[in-house]
Design a protein around this nucleic acid. Structure first.
Lengths: 175, 175
DNA sequence: GTGAATATGAAATTCATTTTCAATTAAATC
DNA sequence: GATTTAATTGAAAATGAATTTCATATTCAC
């Protein structure tokens, strides 16, 4: 009976890991390798983070987490985000509004941001030519680029057409 | 006697303004136009700022200011920097180390940054081709760019050659 | 010189984030 | 399954960059 039971438990674990998702699996791997615990709270927070839209703030993530488990504290969200950063699964970004935004670390790709200063919307883009030129610029001064940030601030398409509709009036406040 | 005296005072003011420097003059203009006072503290702080090296932190600016006038408080430095920003004469920058750096707002030009993650040195660069491509990328999605930030993080020339000299040893700590 | 209103410095406060501490809990071991 | 160890948690406290409050000082128009 014991062999069958162990086999049954192994099957359960296997199904659980498959069901978990790749990023969550990676996070658990990181925890194990680092001698850290895979707690319920960390699981919920990480899962919520990986399912969240891009550029989520701590406050927002906390709200989403609390909907799943009311006992989780804000501190634990901060701590788990720090771990996710350490695991290379999350990156913090600051777009000048005092609220750090978190996004999943891209795999092998890298993207940059267009930030609408009117409505706060954040768009992503990629351009290989720009990235190549960046590398070239850096090499000219003997600088080895490891990472970069390119942020374009302006008015998005929607706000622009909204501005036209409003005519000469002040644009709507979207604070 | 009164006419000669007024003429003499006008001459003094003229010489003072010439001696002041262009940026300081602009700051004073901004203060006047805004109905704000041109105080001794603001003058010292602004002058110190305009004479300081690029990418100065608040703490550093405060230290330099205090060497000129010990009675000036840190709060006044913050306040004056805020005014300088409002006047379009200063810009704050965050390179991810929790210390806002301030630099003079460039006239009609714009520059970007190379940041050495090892020694903290910050270099500036400009590349018109990249800027043109940025504008093009944005236009493709109907985005009107007003401002941008391009930051390249990596290892500077000096740290790279220092790394070679150190051979297999850990590079020197420059914190 | 006068006086209204801005500005200052010190202390207090705010806010995003981190640390402390007592209690809880995950996971290794038996 | 029971025990043990040490990581982890949540609440409260603390940190640090930046801002606000408040009584006093100061600028600048008249």
């Amino acid at each position: 009976m014991t062999k069958e039971r162990n086999l049954y438990i192994k099957k359960l674990k296997f199904i659980f890991i498959i069901h978990m998702g790749r990023e969550l699996y990676k996070f658990n791997q990181y925890l194990n390798e680092s001698g850290l615990r895979a707690t319920r709270q960390r699981g919920i927070i990480a899962k919520t983070f990986f399912e969240a839209g891009p550029h989520i703030s701590v406050e927002e993530l906390y709200h989403q987490v609390v909907e799943k488990d009311r006992r989780i504290g804000l501190v634990t969200v901060y701590r788990t985000l720090k771990l996710l950063r350490g695991a290379g699964l999350a990156q913090g970004r600051q777009f000048g509004d005092n609220h750090t935004r978190y996004e999943k670390t891209p795999g092998d790709s890298h993207h940059d941001h267009l930030i609408c200063t009117r409505c706060g919307r954040i768009l992503e883009f990629e351009n290989d030519t720009i990235e190549g030129l960046q590398r070239k610029v850096a090499e000219e001064v003997g600088f080895a680029v490891l990472d970069h940030k390119l942020e374009l601030y302006g008015i998005c398409k929607e706000c622009r057409s909204r501005g036209k509709k409003a005519g000469r009036k002040a644009p709507p406040t979207l604070s």
